[in-house]
Each structure stands twice: as structure tokens, then as C-alpha cells.
Design a binder for these strands. Structure first.
Lengths: 141, 141
DNA sequence: AACTTCTTTGAGACTCAATCTCAATAAGGA
DNA sequence: TCCTTATTGAGATTGAGTCTCAAAGAAGTT
């Protein structure tokens, strides 16, 4: 059994959930790509491969993965949310082209530290953050 | 005529739009509060005051104000977007309690500068950004 | 003021991502 | 294998936001 599958089983076990072929298919599809994809793209990709699954199950499985921090949800401000797996991937934020939709990832330690400081100042216990830069990429200016 | 009303007329003129009582009412309602309110709250507040306006017009007017940078849209991750006016208000980002919904504003020059640097690195011309910290406020921990 | 043109409004239909329903199915422990 | 309980899926539903289009109204022109 692959390392990834073991992780999925562990997550499901921790949540008291059952291991099903649908959940396995969603998991496999999500970890198979480093793209930022919407739920429907993931759903279609699974069906393309001949596995039977419903949209509802895709959304439900993504919710479980989100809750367990194996998937990151990305609201790009227009249209449906996008998702990316977090396996072997360190934290990063996004810079998004408002014209062509291109998404690049960035990570600046100093910003992360300043965020922590802000949270502390306001007495907040930080859980997550959204940091997205919107603009025009070099091809769209 | 108030300074605010003059501004509204200027915006409308610049966009080639007409000055109407509905647009005036939406504008007045928005600048009358420093809260972060959703479109429907603004709509209800206007009607409460006896002014007749439709939801569609509230959304349409907010769009005009957004486009002209007199209103900031705030997606808090759950439920409808919230709006706040930007009159006499400098730029800021938000730290949001995921339990009670409390919203505080913060602004760190250093973060803003680092963002500009990131955009430059990636060849992006920055248009706007979203920076939201989610966590538990002191009362909800 | 009256006329004309063209924008705006509003009630309600519509969109669409996401969630919910509930009967049928399947996981997994005994 | 049986039994209990979670899961699935087709389709209904939700809800924020947008669109439609006939009627109302703004603002320029005479």
C-alpha cells in the first residue's frame, strides 16, 4: 500500500469514518496533480478514469481532507473555489492574474512572522490566513 | 450639499451615470456606518428608513462604488460578502474571529512593502490584495 | 414647460456552486 | 455470514448574486 493511501486510512480512522472506493478515488485524484483545480474538475477527472462517484461525494471528501489539513482551499474571487493538496508541500500564498487566471505561489518568512505578531497584538489565536495578491501578470499587462 | 454627496455625483458623472434617489440612499446608508455590513443589511436599513429601493439596485450601486474605490468588499469565508466605506479611512486588512465573527482591522507598512516586492519578483502589476487572518479572539479561546 | 432620448429601477426569474435528502448500498466488526 | 450503521448518489434545495424587460424617471433640448 502506498504511503499516501496509508495517510488517507489514518485520517478516516481518526475521524471514525469508513474507507470507501469513492474516498480513495477522490484522494488519488487530488494528490495526482499539483494544479489548483475546482471541485468539478476533480469530479470529471475521476469519472473520466471510469470510476463512479457523485459530485456530493467529491465535496464531502474534500471537506474531510480540508478539515485534516491535507488540502488547501483557494477562493480566487470569481467562480468556484479551487483546491490543491498539501502533500510534500510547504505553506505558501498566492499571486493571481485577474486577466488570465494564472496562479503563482509565494512564501515570505518575514510576512508570516509579522502576521503572528499582529495576531498576538490583537489577542487572537491564529488558525489560518488568506493572503492573495491580485494583479496583471507580465503577459497580460 | 454635503461633501459626501458631491463625491457621489462626481463618481456618477465620471461613469456617465445618472444621479438618482436610490443611489443617493445607498450611498448615505453606506457612509453612515463604519461597520462591516452585508448587502442585505444595507438594503434592510434603507427600507427601514422608509426609502423604497430594491435589492438589485443595492447590489448595482455597491458595484459602482466598488469600482470607484469608495467601498471595500470583504469575503469572510462563510456567508455573504461584507462591505465597508473607505471615506476618511486608510487602507487596512482584517483579522476575523472564526467563532464569534468579530472583525478587527490592522495595517502593517512592512507587510505592504513586502507584498509589493513579491509582485515585482513575479512580474505582476499589483491591483489589489486580500489579507485576512482567521483565528479565535480573546473571548472565544 | 414640454418633449425626447436613453438610463435606471424593481419584481421576480434565473444562475450556479454547494449542500441536503433519503432510500438503496456497502463497510467492517461480531 | 449477519448485522449495524455509515456512505453513496440522483436529484431537490439553498442562497448570494445577477439578469430581464416593461415602466418610471433623469437630464438635455427646444
Amino acid at each position: 500500500m502506498s504511503k499516501g493511501l496509508k495517510r488517507l486510512k489514518k485520517i478516516l480512522h481518526n475521524e471514525g469514518l469508513r474507507f470507501t472506493s469513492q474516498r480513495e478515488a477522490v484522494w488519488n485524484e487530488i494528490i495526482s496533480s499539483d494544479d489548483h483545480r475546482e471541485a468539478d474538475e476533480i469530479y470529471m477527472a475521476i469519472r473520466q478514469k471510469g470510476v463512479s462517484v457523485s459530485r456530493a461525494t467529491v465535496y464531502r471528501t474534500i471537506d474531510v481532507l480540508l478539515k485534516n489539513n491535507f488540502v488547501r482551499k483557494l477562493d480566487v474571487g470569481v467562480g468556484p473555489s479551487k483546491f490543491e493538496h498539501k502533500i510534500d508541500s510547504h505553506h505558501h500564498d498566492h499571486i493571481i492574474c485577474i486577466h488570465c487566471g494564472r496562479i503563482e505561489e509565494f512564501m515570505v518568512d518575514q510576512i508570516e512572522n509579522l502576521q503572528d505578531k499582529v495576531a498576538e497584538e490583537y489577542g487572537f489565536k491564529l488558525v489560518r490566513h488568506i493572503h492573495q495578491l491580485f494583479g496583471l501578470c507580465e503577459n497580460c499587462q
